[in-house]
């Protein structure tokens, strides 16, 4: 189908596709799921960090990162590409503060990050990033928390809640059902953990570690990792809820994860 139209990002195929971007997106689709939601009192990012080996230390290869006082970025996709995106985001935030003397708004950061991701799709000498990034944070002008998705093709969109990665499709459906904008972050966290456990298929996927960060009213808009004990409790609660559901629906959850 690609017939020679898929070698470069500066060629559009006769069907109107840039195949390299679709291939890059495949890298995201085969990596751990990351979800982000805007809640009543803040915003959360949570990731299913797949562990390639049982010998890996839990805290290694972080996918949820702080990039400025009030902003966090999480990614799904090729690890080093994601790390590089986080570095870019930190640079953007740093430069903005140097130039304007105030913190960057999450929307501005997401747009600027999108510009860079886009630039990497438009030059023959570069390859696109192999990761999508979720940007969340507190917007001081609008006095609200916000969530943005920066896709590897440069698309930047704002969401109430979304997911990227392997289990994205079913995770998005689940998020939509939960009406998280009416819940607090503390209430939402175990529900997100449940979603990640549900889309995770232990028989096919590598084991995972739950990672999460939030910027909430309780953290005064500061983005921080969810404290270990809170995260562990949410993880256990989510796992139990997911298993209970799975038993009730006779493995329907596992099937849903399978087709995602």
């Amino acid at each position: 189908m690609a017939a020679g139209y898929d070698y470069a990002t500066n060629v559009i195929s006769s069907e109107g596709k840039v195949y390299q971007l679709e291939y890059a997106a495949k890298a995201v689709e085969s990596s751990g799921t990351t979800v982000g939601v805007q809640c009543k009192d803040g915003v959360i990012l949570a990731s299913e960090k797949l562990m390639m080996s049982k010998m890996l230390v839990d805290s290694t290869c972080k996918v949820v990162h702080k990039v400025d006082d009030q902003i966090g970025v999480a990614y799904s996709g090729i690890g080093p590409d994601g790390k590089s995106i986080v570095g870019l985001a930190q640079n953007i935030a740093h430069k903005y503060k140097q130039n304007y003397g105030e913190r960057i708004a999450p929307g501005v950061l997401a747009q600027q990050l999108g510009d860079i991701l886009y630039a990497y799709t438009s030059y023959a000498a570069y390859r696109p990033f192999g990761a999508h990034a979720l940007v969340c944070g507190y917007d001081e002008d609008h006095k609200e928390s916000q969530l943005y998705l920066c896709e590897l093709d440069g698309t930047v969109t704002r969401y109430w809640g979304t997911a990227v990665g392997k289990g994205a499709r079913s995770a998005r459906t689940e998020i939509q059902k939960l009406k998280l904008t009416e819940k607090t972050c503390a209430e939402a966290l175990p529900l997100l953990a449940k979603i990640l456990h549900t889309v995770h298929d232990p028989s096919k996927d590598k084991p995972f570690v739950l990672e999460a960060g939030w910027a909430t009213d309780a953290t005064k808009g500061t983005f921080s990792r969810v404290p270990k004990d809170v995260l562990a409790a949410a993880d256990a609660e989510g796992k139990a809820a997911s298993e209970a559901d799975g038993a009730a629906h006779g493995g329907a959850a596992a099937a849903a994860a399978g087709d995602a």
């Binding site: 990039v67 006082d69 740093h94 503060k97």
Partner: peptide, 11 residues
């Protein structure tokens, strides 16, 4: 302050 932010981002 820049040092602080950089250090906090290292978590």
């Amino acid at each position: 302050d820049e040092l602080r932010v950089e250090s906090e981002c290292a978590e």
